[in-house]
Amino acid sequence: MDNRSLRRKSLSIPELIAQNWPRLLSGLGMTVEITIISLVFAAIIGLVFGLLSVAPQKALRAIALVYVDIVRGTPLLVQAFFIYFGIPMALGIRLDQNLAGVITLSLNAGAYLAEIFRGGIESINSGQMEAARSLGLTYGLSMRKVILPQAIRTMTPALINQCIITLKDTSLLSVIGVVELTQTGKLIIANNYESFKMWLIVGVMYFIVIMILSKISKQIERKMSYGKNKN
């Protein structure tokens, strides 16, 4: 069989997978890579702005509020276009699409994580901060040793949920040309026209990764519940 007859004949799903496996895998690799890198930056941004949003100083809280509102008030797609096309145009520079993608997702997830951090911190009884401060601990030490460790435990489900959302959001980066899993699917289909089967394969690949992530997260959650209450 030569190439042309191959293309005309409809392939089975296992055949499609076998044929495109290296590309699909590299697309998935890019998806995972961008997700992880973005989440690392987002975690830092989220922690910083989450702490700002509960700061005793009004001005600091206002800064956090503006950032979160801007991100929440605009679509991710517009944010990606703005960062990939808009800013480089205004500054007269060229931005690599992967870098633009990472910046977009970091800023986007960072805002949602900031809200998760704020919620987590505010869920901790104010008596905890008072007890820590009454012992002579500074505000920063009290946060680090007493409030955040407890807040992060209560935040765990929301944090993992945000990881999954960010992983899915990487698919939107296909519009700025990032060759992650969705873009890979598009490119393959442009060759073989197997739209139904290919999107099924791509969908299942996302699904499997996210299921694995959920399973791991359940394990973490279980491990994190400390000294079970007596009553």
Binding site: N125, G127, E130, A131, L135, G136, T138, Q150, Y226, G227
Partner: peptide, 19 residues
């Protein structure tokens, strides 16, 4: 913070650190 080290406080709700 320094002065508070010298002043212990006990609360109605204990406020122990549960973690």
């Amino acid at each position: 913070n320094l002065f508070r080290q010298n002043i212990g406080m006990v609360f109605q709700q204990f406020n122990l650190f549960p973690h």
